[in-house]
Amino acid sequence: MDLRDTLVKVGLEKDAADALSSMPSKLVQVDPRRPFREPGSARNEVMFVRTGILCKFKSDGAGRRQIVSLRFPGEGILPSPSNADYGLQAIVRSEVMVGRDDDFYEVVAKHPSINPFLFRLVQREASISHEWLLNCGRRDSTARVAHFLCEVAARTGVEGENKVLRLPFTQQQIADITGQTSVNVNRVFAELERQQLIHREGRMIEFLDWVELQRVGSFQPDYLLGSKTLSR
């Protein structure tokens, strides 16, 4: 499904979706081995992920990285007057549509129906951020990983009993998302397998007991409700 079809599917009017998807832009192939945008970069662009996954990241004074947000295919990043306080990097090789903020604002001005659409999407992203803060701040290591697996499955449409998720994240990336070490993430995966909640084969994760995995991770998908396309 292309960007225009995705926007229409989640409720944007067809003419507005046509205008957003056809605005002047360039397609950029993003290599996961190096940052795509460094912290402090100007935010005078609008971005849509066409394929792959982008992450926002921040680093502390010692250079330790925390992944603070993800963008899946169809999702995006809006422009802002200030410089970014985060960096952008691909999780896997990704294709990103990048446009100028002036062109984006022109489209929004001509299609007022986009404004409430964007408002809902910003609200959704805030809800996801709140859930991630709770996950890292209060849940134990097993619950953090279980919750993250449930969210990825829900955001990619493969949640449910006996469904199989091809996990695109390395253990280090999962550690950078859940605020722990890669060694501990490996132990958690082993524990989830021991409890017969998942079965792992390489990066393929089969959900053996979806209901129990959600319970372990305290996962309630209501915070993901709403559009899944363009986020701040």
Rank of each mutant, 00 (worst) to 15 (best):
M1R: 06
D2I: 02
D2N: 15
L3R: 08
D5C: 05
V10A: 04
L12Q: 02
K14Q: 08
K14H: 05
D15Y: 05
A19G: 08
S22M: 07
P24L: 06
P24F: 05
K26V: 15
V30H: 05
V30T: 06
V30R: 06
P32F: 03
P35Q: 02
F36E: 00
R37K: 12
R37A: 05
E38G: 00
S41I: 00
A42G: 10
V46Y: 02
V46H: 01
M47V: 01
M47L: 15
V49W: 04
L54K: 01
F57N: 02
G61H: 08
G61Y: 07
G63D: 09
R64V: 08
R65E: 15
I67S: 05
V68Y: 06
G74T: 03
I77A: 12
P81Y: 10
S82N: 13
S82K: 13
D85W: 02
G87R: 00
L88P: 02
A90G: 13
A90Q: 06
I91K: 07
S94G: 10
S94I: 07
E95H: 07
M97D: 10
G99W: 02
G99F: 02
D102I: 12
D103Q: 09
F104G: 04
Y105A: 10
E106N: 14
V107E: 08
V108I: 15
A109N: 13
K110F: 06
I114R: 05
I114A: 04
P116F: 07
P116K: 07
F117S: 00
F117E: 00
F119A: 13
R120I: 01
E125G: 14
A126T: 14
E131I: 07
L134K: 15
N135G: 08
N135P: 03
C136R: 15
S141W: 10
A146H: 06
A146W: 03
F148M: 13
L149H: 10
C150R: 05
E151I: 04
R155A: 09
T156G: 06
G157N: 08
G157C: 09
G157Y: 06
E159V: 01
E159S: 14
E161S: 11
Q172S: 09
G179W: 12
Q180K: 12
T181D: 06
T181L: 03
N184H: 15
N184P: 02
N186S: 15
N186E: 10
N186V: 02
A190W: 00
E191N: 12
Q195E: 14
M204N: 14
L208V: 15
D209F: 00
D209R: 12
V211F: 13
E212G: 03
L213D: 03
R215S: 11
V216N: 06
P221V: 09
P221I: 08
Y223S: 01
G226H: 02
K228Y: 04
K228P: 03
T229F: 04
T229V: 05
T229P: 00
L230E: 00
S231K: 12
